[in-house]
């Protein structure tokens, strides 16, 4: 499969009161065409900032300081705003955890989807609205004509998420970035949305970058997974491989500490301590203070992400395998 998106040594920093936060600190990640890639990590690991960096939607105090984001071989970093605008929404779309932040409260959902279509596909208003209604039907909203005339606040959380998916897919993007798309939803509604995403993927053939903290969702949806910790990817592998034989101590700890359905444990595994203060990340491997291994060199040098597993596709960043 050809590479659709290739992130190389991406660094994104934020200037905040008290210093500089290296939110993304040297990320390498490749998304093949039509693949679903999971990006997992805990709060503050930099997974959402990676997504916003790809989209070039960073807050004013944030900046890509280094690295490249190649989309079809074209570097999005440094692309003029007008060209980025073309790609955003047309070729790469994004959906967010809380649809209310992404939907405009004063326009009907039909108008918003139609607007997205019109902006990117140069069709007239009527054709745009027709497409909007068709998209609403496609994402499983019953009576789509009536719903198109409603405002976001008139819809439930699950329904809004469907609308956002409809809007994101209305331009048939090649890459869909989904940032915690089901985190705010109830389990039975999450199941509906995940099923919808799987079905639509078959229909549209978009690649998906799925950002989540839920390893269950990853196991169900993704072809491969990248695990982030303190701004870096510490492990990446095909999904089954990662779950069957995690190599990085953080991934191992994470997998061991989740309660398993139907398998009550005597005692849950614990990763001691907490994530480092983003303003004072330790030198060397950022996970070292919590690491049971504490491999030599990890106190000084940052380990590179490279094949150390059983296959060339299994990458890990840990000195113990050197």
């Amino acid at each position: 499969m050809s590479d659709l998106l290739r992130i190389e040594d991406l660094h994104t920093q934020f200037h905040v009161h008290g210093g500089t936060v290296k939110a993304v600190d040297g990320v390498n990640l490749t998304i093949p065409a039509k693949a679903t890639v999971g990006l997992v990590g805990e709060s503050g690991s930099g997974k959402s900032i990676t997504a916003l960096s790809i989209m070039r939607l960073l807050e004013k105090n944030g900046r890509i300081t280094q690295g490249h984001v190649f989309f079809h071989g074209q570097d999005l970093v440094g692309l003029p705003d007008e060209q980025m605008q073309e790609i955003r929404g047309n070729d790469i779309s994004m959906i967010f955890q809380e649809p209310m932040t992404a939907l405009n409260p004063v326009f009907t959902v039909g108008d918003q989807i139609a607007e997205a279509v019109r902006l990117h596909q140069k069709v007239d208003r009527e054709a745009g609205l027709k497409r909007a209604i068709e998209m609403l039907r496609l994402v499983g909203i019953s009576d789509p004509k009536r719903r198109a005339g409603q405002y976001p606040h008139e819809l439930s959380g699950g329904m809004r998420q469907r609308v956002m998916i409809a809007m994101a897919l209305s331009t048939s993007p090649e890459l869909l970035i989904a940032d915690e798309p089901t985190t705010a939803l109830d389990v039975t509604i999450q199941a509906q949305i995940l099923k919808l995403m799987r079905n639509l993927k078959g229909e549209f053939g978009s690649a998906i970058l799925l950002i989540t903290h839920d390893l269950g969702v990853v196991a169900e949806m993704c072809d491969s997974v990248a695990v982030m910790y303190a701004g870096r990817i510490v492990e990446q592998a095909p999904t089954e491989e990662l779950f069957a034989s995690p190599k990085h101590p953080y991934t191992q700890g994470l997998l061991a500490s989740i309660p398993r359905l139907g398998k009550k444990q005597e005692r849950l595994h614990v990763i001691t301590g907490s994530v480092p203060n983003p303003l004072a990340v330790p030198p060397g491997c950022a996970f070292r203070p919590r690491c049971p291994i504490k491999a030599p060199r990890s106190d000084r040098d940052i380990p590179a992400l490279k094949p150390n597993g059983s296959t060339a596709e299994h990458l890990v960043a840990c000195w113990q395998y050197e």
Partner: peptide, 18 residues
Amino acid sequence: ISVIPIPDPTVRREQTVL
């Protein structure tokens, strides 16, 4: 129970999506 995502990609089960 049938739709709770399970962190094990080898698990295959029948889901009842309400």
